[in-house]
């Protein structure tokens, strides 16, 4: 494990410890996971949060504004901790590590699923069961709404990717052409 990976792991374990102490692991997972995916999809947000000319208070205000009413205050505070520590560039990786550690603590693996539309609870449960049968592991599904998949789903469990998206089929067609 490199020094950067060690830091990511340390922050992820710290977040997990705080979330456990507050007994809010699952909602914090969801909040941070969504924020991390939103940060990945928005270059302007990443630039704003990493701008050294922007005072820290202003950057934290951006986070508060984005999470107000949509995430727990604890989640916003943890995000503020990461941004204040200058970990914005590693935020996605840190959150993924935190989610993985949390799932592992429940003896589960995280399946990162991308879909063009939101999935309801019943679909997520059936999807988790199906992915569990396919991989032979207990799986927790984290859904990311990503219109670029066009249709269908893409699931990534560790290094395994099960791609049933329309985008993937179009890419295959393009490769064949």
């Amino acid at each position: 494990m490199t020094a950067a990976e060690s830091k990511v792991d340390a922050y992820a374990r710290a977040i997990l410890a705080i979330a456990r102490a507050e007994d809010r692991v699952a909602p914090v997972e969801d909040d941070l996971f969504r924020f991390a995916r939103a940060l990945e999809g928005s270059e302007s947000l990443r630039v704003a949060l990493t701008d050294p000319q922007l005072p820290l208070e202003r950057r934290l205000a951006v986070v508060d504004e984005l999470t107000a009413g949509k995430a727990l205050p604890l989640s916003a505070a943890l995000l503020g901790m990461l941004i204040g520590a200058g970990r914005v560039n590693d935020l996605g990786e840190t959150v993924d590590r935190f989610v993985a550690l949390a799932a592992a603590s429940r003896e589960r693996e995280v399946a990162e699923v991308r879909s063009a539309i939101e999935l309801d609870e019943e679909q997520i449960a059936r999807l988790a069961e199906a992915l569990g049968r396919a991989t032979g592991k207990a799986v927790e599904v984290k859904v990311i709404v990503d219109p670029s998949v066009l249709g269908g789903l893409v699931a990534r469990i560790g290094d395994t990717v099960i791609d049933g998206s329309v985008r993937h089929r179009l890419d295959q067609m393009k490769a064949q052409l």
Partner: peptide, 11 residues
């Protein structure tokens, strides 16, 4: 329908 198809095929 595509999502259901994916869930069924993966399952």
């Amino acid at each position: 329908a595509l999502i259901e198809s994916y869930i069924n095929s993966v399952g």
